[in-house]
């Protein structure tokens, strides 16, 4: 189980997280929603070790992990699929997937997972030898997700996986996220598309300027008046 307690993070002097507490329990899909700049990506970066919290606690299975390197955190089973896909543009699709398995030493298991990814994403197999930068946006997103899964994580964090994709592809991405959860992985997903995120998740947190302002089940948040107004009727939904 992942737990954040009163986590504060600052970029230089500018506070980005002002005391965030949240949890992802075994088998859960948790959504993190909120406007641009609310601190969603910062939260994920803090969990994966890219940022160090100034205060508060981050624990994973009860062990403190704040301050550990991204490598150590990945080794403990938390993968981070970053915002904007961030595939390695000049590496081949296959090399990108192998980068996901960099810390693993079980060659047979890696080969098996590679086959599984290719079976799930035939486009990636077709383009296995091609530079990832030549893929379409949708294909790159699939690659970024597959790459994160290649580490065999127990928790995978997706940062705006549907960003900039055509509606049909957005649907596909959400299906994949659900599949991942059905396989027993914990999922922490950041989404601008609040309606979809709330429909999909077990629980959700609404962030505003570095604070959790509302938490609860998907339907509960969907029903709450301020969420409806700010995210479901307004700009986020229109986007």
């Amino acid at each position: 189980m992942l737990r954040l307690e009163e986590v504060e993070v600052a970029y230089g002097r500018v506070a980005a997280l002002r005391g965030i507490s949240l949890e992802v329990r075994e088998g859960e899909l948790v959504s993190l929603i909120g406007a641009n700049g609310a601190g969603k990506s910062t939260t994920l970066k803090t969990v994966s070790g890219l940022l160090k919290p100034a205060a508060g606690r981050v624990t994973w299975d009860g062990q403190p992990i704040a301050g550990l390197s991204p490598r150590e955190i990945l080794r403990r089973g938390i993968a981070h699929c970053p915002e904007g896909r961030r595939v390695f543009p000049h590496l081949s699709v296959r090399e990108n997937l192998m980068m996901g398995a960099l810390l693993r030493r079980d060659a047979a298991g890696i080969a098996q997972d590679l086959d599984a990814m290719y079976a799930r994403f035939p486009r990636l197999q077709e383009r296995a030898g091609q530079a990832a930068g030549t893929l379409s946006g949708g294909e790159q997103q699939m690659l970024a997700i597959a790459r994160a899964l290649m580490s065999r994580p127990r928790l995978v964090m997706f940062d705006e996986p549907s960003l900039g994709l055509a509606p049909a592809l957005v649907q596909q991405v959400f299906e994949i996220v659900q599949e991942v959860r059905r396989q027993g992985l914990m999922v922490l997903m950041v989404e601008q598309n609040a309606l979809a995120a709330l429909g999909l998740c077990d629980r959700a947190y609404l962030l505003e300027t570095g604070r959790v302002v509302r938490a609860g089940s998907g339907p509960a948040l969907m029903a709450s008046a301020d969420v409806r107004e700010a995210y479901l009727g307004g700009r986020a939904f229109a986007a």
Binding site: H80, P82, F88, M99
Partner: peptide
């Protein structure tokens, strides 16, 4: 080469 292209993403790969 991965680090060459995107150091932060490479860090996330370990």
């Amino acid at each position: 080469r991965a680090t060459f292209q995107d150091a932060e993403a490479a860090a996330l790969m370990g």
